[in-house]
Design a protein around this nucleic acid. Sequence first.
RNA 1: UCCCCGGUAGCUCAACGGUAGAGCAUUCGGCUGUUAACCGAAGGGUUGCUAGUUCGAAUCUAGCCCGGGGAG
Length: 408
Amino acid sequence: ASLYAFCKECVTTCSISYLPRFFLQPRPSAKLLRMPFQFELLATDPTGARLGRITTPHGVIETPIFMPVGTGATVKGQTQDDLESLGVQILLGNTYHLYLRPGHELIRSMGGLHKFMSWPHPILTDSGGFQVFSLSELRKVTDEGVTFRSHLDGSEHFLSPEKAMEIEIALGADIMMVLDECIEAPADESTTRAAATRTLAWARRCRDYFAAHGDPGKQALFGIVQGGTHAPLRCDNVRALVDLDFPGYGIGGLAVGEAHDLTCAMTHVVNSQLPAHKPRYLMGVGKPEQILDYVALGVDMMDCVLPTRSARHGYLYSSDGHLTIRNKQYARDPRPIDETCSCAVCRRYSRAYLRHLYATGEFLAIILNTHHNLHFYLDMMGKIREAIRFGKLERFRSDLQARFTTQK
RNA sequence: UCCCCGGUAGCUCAACGGUAGAGCAUUCGGCUGUUAACCGAAGGGUUGCUAGUUCGAAUCUAGCCCGGGGAG
């Protein structure tokens, strides 16, 4: 029940049947629940993993946390009720996508993103920095900002650090990310240095704009470290960024083509320079077996499209690794996806049925597969937190990684 | 009975004298701050049958078989 705390405005839009019981008790003042951003480090594990708690105006987040991606104000295939029943603590939204559709002004006029999408729990918005990378064919970057050609209608749009902040303030997420320049890996040193330097300058501009126009009581702004796969660049970049004193730090530009070992090495370099009392968000990762490594490196927050996208593509996670439900071998398999899984899908449906739904292109396949994969990720994160609490993450990690690498 | 159109991969169709291709389906593989219910790969054909013309025929000719349409 302690998972969710609610602000007064949002509660009115939330289905009462899904409210935790404690909230149904009369409360002295809903105002008391409006807590500004705060991070508490509760415990560390011998591996270096951290157990923590982030308090935001829309509730508390237990770390290490996995944040499902809901780019366009929706986690594809799941209702907000579904997400609550899964125990999702915080969602991601995206500046670029929501700016194009339905527009940040519209969302502002609807009372902000929480209210608009009826998600009274924490939200983090990404800045559009990743779209600098993923929409590379459709954009031009200068020191001033990024000119995008919309992937929807080809229209031109200019995203500067200030514009990104304006949009993210309008969306009203609990955590905002600065605009950064994410580049592919591998990239040569001068390219990487240029992007890291520009990202740092943009971080300063975002911070200044937010200081002038934002409300630190409602939103927290995270800086983003760049520096590619060049350790000295990462090191310089993170030190300079820490001087800007953000309440939390994103580690960007990783898992964009480089080997996992290198991702870990860079994460280690950055984390060794970040202050211990602030949350660390490794952006855009990862596979389950990789997440264990990142957590052991001291990462507190992660997000990834993998569980949701893979689900839509017929790739399901299980305690043994994964199964590709579209494969013929499951056509007559009466078992659930994972016999040890307690999710609503595994309690009710067979592999044979799920394969049928996928093969016939039914919407329900997306819904059920996504539900299961998110459950897998969130359940794993819960077990990770428990393992850290008891100082036993190393054993949990080696067990899981052994199971995941022996499959195939 | 005659005339016309058609018969090519499981399906729908390209190629119209130069070693038979696509889409879909099938099977398998990838997806890492979502341009992704996506992308990629593989398997799959004595071109209805039989003769003929030709250096060479899915393609031209003849006969037959099957389907659709028309005339009487």
